[in-house]
Structure formats: structure tokens, C-alpha cells
Nucleic acid binder design. Structure first.
Lengths: 329, 329
DNA sequence: TTGTAGGCGTTATCAA
DNA sequence: TTGATAACGCCTACAA
């Protein structure tokens, strides 16, 4: 087991004071080159690394960011956040931050966790996902001046804090446009109940695309909580009542259900899902793909900008999704 | 923004010394009850929480455990580790530990990360996944006396360190037994190339089950790297050459491919996968399910035992998987 | 440009 | 049983 290497060990070896070593680390430009090189050589030779706990005590910064990990719901949509999490961890690492995980069952408990995390570990920032109308979490963090960024727009007040999001409406619009181009007119939409920002956004794209093409969308959409069985049920209902010739869905789960419903119909009824989850790839379901890696990277960008005190021109990033076509269209 | 509450704030309010507050926190039994209650009241009233960085400086312990997050490969098998990670975070929280994430591209880089994590953040322990024969990571950690537990057996030396694993052989044996009970004799196996501990383990269960039933397994299995296309290819090959009437697969990806291969065969060829990933649930694929939440919990148990210095009777845990039957059987 | 002194919040040691 | 003192490793002021 190697002995603990502190700033003092380095100082001794380089025959300078501890302060000079600290300067080499934090303000290299004020150290004479010859001295700096000697210190850097000592650092490398000893494998010295600054102790975060000690640094944090002085600076109050931990170089740690917190992200919530969700219970996997149906396991399909959960993969979206998992992919985001991976991208986040990776990008944060290259920016010199580590990622810390926490769980929470509801907003209030999550806020209690913020409090705990902040006072025990002095986290530098939070990355929130799944924001919705009137989110109490963002209000709490903002009130305390805690840096944070959300993956997902604040639907109420778009300017209130830094966020990164993917343009869901553009995604469903592209899906709808693709079907229109293929000659379809009566294109149905299977979505979530009105009221959720994300769900409404995705419905909007379909609606707007249809209207632009001169098709009346009335009666062509259905709403249901997420799930495969739910998707199948309402898709069947939609097919029976409104006879759409193609379907756009708000999620891959819904699309999977819709796929069951359209099975064996002639002519075939194309179905397009949302999120391009592994399931979609596995079964050949066309889907709208979110650039999750880039979204994560931009979140880190925004965060480091805030943490370094530099105020960038823009702190709202809206990314464009892409349509991945497979067998089902 | 609330003022920072330190042990001194609490001490002042409770009219005791800082040391007494510390004792109430870390050794309550040596404090007179009356004093202790007064201090606890002050702690509650002020919302005091011990600062981890300061505590860590003194004790050298961070109450942090590290887990690696993998790049999602095909996104199907990746979900296994994601579910494990969720369970781990949750259980660790209840045990008073937080989870820190890191990424690594190969074993050497991962070891470099250990070094970094250990000297910068003084992590208390590591949870490793995906161990294989002659894993350099466990050797490195063991040599330095760093506490760790692996999810996955050390295939070379079963006694060398604490581990938790799921009995893969029992899983494929159960799958095979189920098919045997349904009247099948020529049951094929689609697995990974020999040499990986996990893959060989899963093949063993199928092999043993067949032999026990008096069926000669020779020629009834194929090997391929993981993947849907790969699974389809070798399953097709197997069906053509060895005419199995049912298939057991080493993963859901392979099973998904096999499902393509057996499509439209009469009589139907049942397929059973492994891992019970969301995809399996979504498309009705029967699969062997690992108790990932429990595995994670046991990992935390083992870790806390090591960290608290108590040496439990057993530090090797082998959990039993369960067979989830769906349409494909 | 380099060195010295002090303190961040906590706990271990030892004395009262 | 409680309290005073020192120390963990680092960084910021200030002095040399």
C-alpha cells in the first residue's frame, strides 16, 4: 500500500514550500518556469493527486454533480434516462466533475434529499430530469441559489433557468410528414393525457403537421397513460372508429401496443414510435430518436458555465431529434 | 439562503462543547441522557447535518462507493446493469452510503480510475460488475487492500474475495427442464463462445439438464458473440443441421434473433431467452429472470460488513434465477 | 517569486 | 461525563 502523498510530500521533494506547489496547481502562471517544472516532475513522480475533501473544505466546492436515478417503470422508457445518464457521466468526467446518484419517490422527498446532499456533501450542482408544469424542485433550488440544469423544458416559464431539451414536436412532425409524403392522409396519434408538457409537445407536432397538409385532425387522436396494453387498446379503438391508415405514437411502449392492434391489417398500417429505445431497434419499429448523448453534453456545458461564473449567451438548448425508419413504415 | 450550521452552532445552542456534540453523533452511549437530549433537540431545531468533507478528513472515510457505468452496447443487455445499478443506489442509500459513477473503456483505464478515485475522493469501496477469468482489476484492488465486492463470480478462485452472483446454470437448466417436461428432447442451445465465465456457466445448465434426461447434447449447440443478427444466423444454422424442436439462449438478444429464425416453423419451435430484459416482456419472450434487486442488496450487505470490520460467516452469495414463461413457449 | 500563518468542520487524544 | 487542543490536507492572505 503506497504512503499517502500530500502537497507537503511534493513540496519536500521539489524543495519548495507547500504554497508553491499549490500555486503550480491553481495558478501556474505566477510560478517561475524552472520551479514549476521541478514541482510538476515531483507531482508526476509521486503520483500526487489533490485531496478533494481538503480542497472542498477550503473552497466549498466538491466537483460533484448529482443526478437522480429512477425506478425502471416499464423498462422501455426507462432506457432513455439510462442512456442520458451514461452520457452525462462521461461528459462530466472530461470536465472534471464526478456524478453522484440519488433516488427519490416524489418531489417532496427529492427536495429533502437536495437539502441533505447539499449540507453533507456540498454538491456543486444538480441535473434534473422529467420536469413538469409548476415543478416544486426547480423553485426550491432556485430560491437557494443552487446551480442546476434541467433536461426538459420548464413548461411554465421558459426563461427561468438553464435547460436542455429535445424538440418533441419537431420529432412527431417529421414522423407525420414522412407518412404524408408516403401518401397517407388520415394519420392517427396515440398519446398521453393532456397536461404533461412532454406529451402535449409531441401531440402538437403531429397536429400542426396534419393541419399544414390540409388534413382535419379532429377525431384522429387518442389519449392514454403509457404502456403497451394501453397503446393496444386505444389504437384498436382508433382504428375502429376513425379508420386511420397510419399511426404516430408518443412513445415506443404505445407504439408496441399499436403494432399489436394493426397486426394483420391490409393494407398494412405503418406505426412510428418515439425515443428509439432498444426495443424499437430489436423489433424493427420506426421511431423518433433523441440525441441523448448530446443532450447530456450540453447539460454539462451549461453547468460548467454557471459554476465557472461565466454567463454564456444562451442557456436554453433545444436539440432536434431524428427519424429512424425501419420495417414498420 | 440559510446560514451554514456547523457542530459549533449546535454546541452553542445546546450549551455544550463541540466535542460533546460529536459524541452524541458518534458515540451516544457515553453522553449523559439529559445532555444528549438537549443536543439532539438542537440538532433537529437547526437542521444540522455533519459535513462529509470535514468528517472524511479526520476519519479517512467518505461513505461513498463507486460503480462503473457501461456504454450501452446493444441496449438490450445493458438494461441488466442499469437495473442492478438502481437497486444498488437504493440499498446503499438506506445503509448510509452514496453511489458515485465512473466510466472506463478497458481494464487498465479502469484501474487508473481506481487510483484517481481513491486518492482524490477516498472512496470507501468499489462494486465491480462483469468479472472474467484472471481479472486484473480485482488483483489490483486486493493488493492495495481496497474493499470491494463483485457482482459476478471470480471464475478462477472462488474464495478470493466477496462476491454475489446469480446461478446462470440453474437458470438454463430450469429452462431446459421446462422444455423437456413439455415433451421436447432435441433442445438446442445458442450461446457465447467458450471462455467467458458467464457464458460457459449458462451452457453448463443446458448441457447437464439434457444429459440428465438421457439426451445426447452433441451437435445441439452453437456459439456466437452476442447480438440479434448473430443469434438469428446461428439459430438458422442449428435448425437446418441439427433439427432441434426447441431453443434455449444465453441472452435475450440471441433469443430475439432465434425468434426470427424459427418464425413460421410448424410445429412452433419454443425459444427461451436469458435476463428477462424489457424487450422480452414487450414481445412475449420467455426468459430467465435474475433477481437483480436482491443481488444489489446483497452486494451492499457484503460491503458494509467489510467496511464495519465485522467478518460475516459467508461472503459468497449465489442467488437463484427464475423462469418467466410467456408466449414463446 | 516564494514562504508563513491561519482556518475550513470534524474527530481523537487526553486532561479536568 | 465533559471540555480543550491538535490535526487531517488544502487554499487564501499577507509578508518577505
Amino acid at each position: 500500500m503506497p504512503e499517502k502523498v500530500t502537497i507537503a510530500t511534493v513540496a519536500r521533494r521539489a524543495r519548495v514550500s507547500r504554497q508553491t506547489v499549490s500555486n503550480v496547481l491553481n495558478a501556474p502562471h505566477i510560478v517561475r518556469e524552472e520551479t514549476r517544472l521541478r514541482v510538476q516532475e515531483a507531482i508526476a513522480a509521486l503520483g500526487y493527486r489533490a485531496n478533494q475533501a481538503a480542497r472542498q473544505m477550503r473552497t466549498g466546492r466538491s466537483r460533484l454533480i448529482a443526478v437522480r436515478i429512477e425506478p425502471t417503470r416499464d423498462g422501455i422508457n426507462g432506457s432513455v434516462l439510462d442512456r442520458f445518464l451514461h452520457g452525462l457521466t462521461e461528459t462530466a468526467e472530461t470536465a472534471g466533475y464526478r456524478t453522484m446518484l440519488y433516488t427519490a419517490t416524489d418531489d417532496q422527498q427529492e427536495i429533502a434529499t437536495y437539502d441533505d446532499l447539499l449540507s453533507s456533501y456540498e454538491l456543486d450542482a444538480f441535473v434534473l430530469t422529467g420536469t413538469d408544469h409548476g415543478d416544486p424542485r426547480t423553485a426550491w433550488l432556485a430560491a437557494r441559489g443552487v446551480p442546476f440544469v434541467t433536461f426538459g423544458r420548464p413548461w411554465d416559464a421558459p426563461e427561468s433557468h438553464p435547460w436542455v431539451d429535445v424538440d418533441g414536436a419537431a420529432g412527431t412532425a417529421a414522423a407525420t410528414a414522412h407518412l404524408l409524403a408516403a401518401g397517407h392522409r388520415r394519420i392517427g396519434f396515440v398519446g398521453w393525457p393532456a397536461g404533461s408538457g412532454v406529451g402535449d409537445d409531441r401531440r402538437t407536432g403531429w397536429h400542426r403537421s396534419l393541419v399544414a397538409a390540409g388534413v382535419d385532425p379532429v377525431g384522429l387522436d387518442r389519449q392514454t397513460p403509457d404502456g403497451i396494453a394501453e397503446g393496444e387498446r386505444v389504437a384498436r379503438e382508433l382504428l375502429d372508429r376513425a379508420t386511420p391508415t397510419a399511426l404516430v405514437c408518443a412513445s415506443d411502449s404505445l407504439a408496441l401496443g399499436a403494432l399489436q392492434a394493426v397486426r394483420a391489417r391490409t393494407p398494412a398500417v405503418p406505426v412510428i414510435g418515439f425515443d428509439d429505445t432498444p426495443v424499437a431497434g430489436a423489433i424493427g419499429l420506426s421511431s423518433v430518436s433523441q440525441p441523448l448523448g448530446e443532450a447530456a453534453a450540453r447539460c454539462v456545458d451549461l453547468l460548467t458555465a454557471v459554476l465557472d461564473g461565466s454567463h454564456p449567451a444562451t442557456d436554453h438548448v433545444l436539440l432536434q431529434p431524428s427519424l429512424v425508419l425501419r420495417h414498420t413504415t
